[in-house]
């Protein structure tokens, strides 16, 4: 279970997240919703320790701040919105990087990465440069890289962006499989309808604060208001 206590993130005098207190249990699928600038991605980045924050973040009873980077990587797998690399890595390199948290030899890392790629039907893409992959293929490879970390929780930032309807459906089915295997899933997205079949718990953020949370199906009224312009709600 991820727990945050009084989580606050400030950036240049602006408060992005304000005094967040929340528990995100595992197993389960969770959807982090909110308009642009509401602090969704910032929440993920704070969880991953990519940005400084005030307050406390826990995995069960362990404060995430005291974990070593590799220990944290074995808990949280991250699928970012975009990849920021200038280098012609191939799909195998990317999946293999997911074995970095484990103290294993390079050949064992490669073997484990290839096993996972076979399991996810990605071996055909193993030698393809990532720049040549389609949006859907790249996302599956990035997800395989995160799963290679054998995480307890998978954090996905806007995973359905740039996907066509077919690949959006493939994504949902994959997440359904992972959730059934006991993996915790936290998805940042605007598109709650797409993920409704996963029966997620929703956390609605607005202006850096939690304005509603609970089963997605129970939040129809709140969701209607969540994306209204600020003036309409005040």
């Amino acid at each position: 279970m991820i727990r945050c206590r009084a989580l606050t993130v400030r950036f240049r005098h602006r408060t992005i997240l304000s005094d967040l207190n929340i528990e995100i249990p595992k197993p389960g699928t969770h959807l982090l919703l909110g308009p642009n600038g509401s602090g969704k991605t910032t929440f993920l980045k704070a969880l991953l320790g990519l940005i400084p924050y005030h307050g406390e973040l826990f995995w069960a009873e362990t404060n995430l701040a005291v974990l070593k980077p590799r220990e944290k990587a074995r808990l949280l797998g991250y699928v970012p919105q975009t990849l920021q690399t200038d280098f012609p890595l191939n799909a195998r390199d990317l999946v293999e990087s997911g074995r970095f948290p484990f103290a294993e030899s390079k050949s064992t890392s490669r073997e484990n990465a290839e096993k996972l790629m076979q399991h996810m039907n990605l071996m055909d893409l193993a030698d393809s440069p990532i720049a040549s992959l389609s949006g859907g293929e790249l996302q599956r490879v990035v997800m395989a890289s995160a799963l290679a970390q054998e995480p307890q929780f998978l954090l996905l930032d806007e995973p359905a962006n740039h996907l066509d309807p077919y690949h959006r459906q493939v994504l949902v089915e994959s997440l359904q499989t992972f959730a059934a295997q006991g993996l915790g899933i936290l998805i940042v997205s605007h598109d709650w309808e797409l993920f409704r079949s996963l029966n997620p718990q929703a956390i609605c953020l607005r202006g850096g604060e939690i304005v509603a949370s609970g089963p997605l199906d129970d939040l129809s009224a709140e969701l209607g208001q969540l994306y209204q312009p600020e003036r309409a709600t005040t």
């Binding site: 980045k45 991250y78 690399t85 997911g98 970095f100």
Partner: peptide, 20 residues
């Protein structure tokens, strides 16, 4: 060398893989 390989992914993703 292996840390440099992970650094190729960009700062955020590399850190999420456990690279300080």
């Amino acid at each position: 060398g292996r840390r440099l390989n992970v650094l190729l992914l960009g700062d955020d993703l590399a850190q999420s893989k456990g690279l300080p």
